[in-house]
Design a protein around this nucleic acid. Structure first.
Lengths: 193, 193
DNA sequence: GACGTGGGAATTCCCAGACC
DNA sequence: GGTCTGGGAATTCCCACGTC
């Protein structure tokens, strides 16, 4: 599970957007439950899809929990995006991918939620970090918030050593392309652990 | 290590030659040291050649021993051949191969020894058996025998599941061809364990 | 430095049971 | 019966160290 093997990765920092700490006046993300740090088995592409998702840190045999976040100090349409990053400071793009419900081809988990949604599902990480972005059009006075987002089906697709360069190149290319695109005024980053 | 997986193999018995028990009047093979039954790691073809040989049953860290046999009640030129067989009764051809010094393309270990040779080296097995044939032109009164044959470099090449049918087919074909060929008057079989 | 030995780890296969 | 979950085992890679 040692990610140190990827340290030779070109130091391209994808974290260029303004950082929004939890103490900010605007919307912010709360980590309700971290993903469990041990005992989760990575899956390779060759193993096919769906082999179960990351359990929550406090998950148990009988009472399963899942990684959970919450968009606080905000009410309205919102988008939560989760992606794997390195555990370095600053966090960098990671070659492994998030797979499962709500996950995209690019290895991230994208989820649109509204004020009426109860819960969502799917996404997390292990010794890595999770990057979470939230985009919103307006903010409201404190206390107000959206319902928790529960990622109940979030797997990690382990890239093989041979595939690292290819996957990471694609990922960084996509990231640059993305940054040239539409602006996301309220976008921030929040590493999970 | 369970060889039961090969039980579906066509029941072609390659043991058609006359059996020569150790109590016979003529030459016979003595097992001086069996191969160690546990702790030996099989190697696959993809791992390349030479990853060490089978240790003897009584082998230890500091004092290594090796599978050893002895042709007794005989003096003169002799040939010792070792091959892997199943642990069934009667023994059948086994898909795995013996590799290492004195081993042939066909997965057996072939060794010609004479009255002046001191020791030889290379060959063995694990939970399988070893078939040993000895061929000789003449026999002498008891007590006389050739020096021990020490197989100090005998590895087992593990055939993959995908390769079983192919390897075994080839092996059985070779065996039939062999039996049609030259006769070996004093040839016998002796399973190691 | 190439090769022989040994052994840890990465990757792939594949099966059993739960669930739909 | 087909898919989802979980996990054991098979296969492949690859590295460390001693020897020639």
């Amino acid at each position: 599970m040692n990610m140190m093997q990827y340290d030779y990765i070109p130091p391209v920092d994808i974290k260029t957007e303004p950082y929004t700490p939890e103490t900010a006046h605007g919307p912010y993300i709360q980590i309700i439950e971290e993903p469990k740090q041990r005992g989760f088995r990575f899956r390779y592409e060759c193993e096919g899809p769906s082999h179960g998702g990351l359990p929550g840190a406090s998950s148990e045999k009988n009472r399963r929990t899942y990684p959970t976040v919450k968009v606080s100090n905000y009410v309205g349409q919102a988008r939560v995006e989760v992606q794997l990053v390195s555990h370095t400071e600053p966090p960098r793009a990671h070659a492994h991918s998030l797979v499962g419900r709500h996950c995209t081809e690019s290895g991230t988990c994208l989820l649109d939620i509204g004020p009426t949604d109860l819960t969502a599902s799917s996404v997390a990480c292990t010794q890595h970090h999770l990057h979470t972005r939230h985009e919103a059009g307006m903010s409201l006075p404190a206390v107000m918030s959206l319902p928790a987002v529960i990622f109940s089906n979030l797997g990690i697709l382990h890239v093989t050593k041979k595939g690292v360069v290819e996957v990471l190149s694609r990922r960084l290319r996509d990231e640059r392309k993305r940054q040239k695109g539409a602006h996301h005024p309220l976008t921030g980053r929040l590493p999970l652990r």
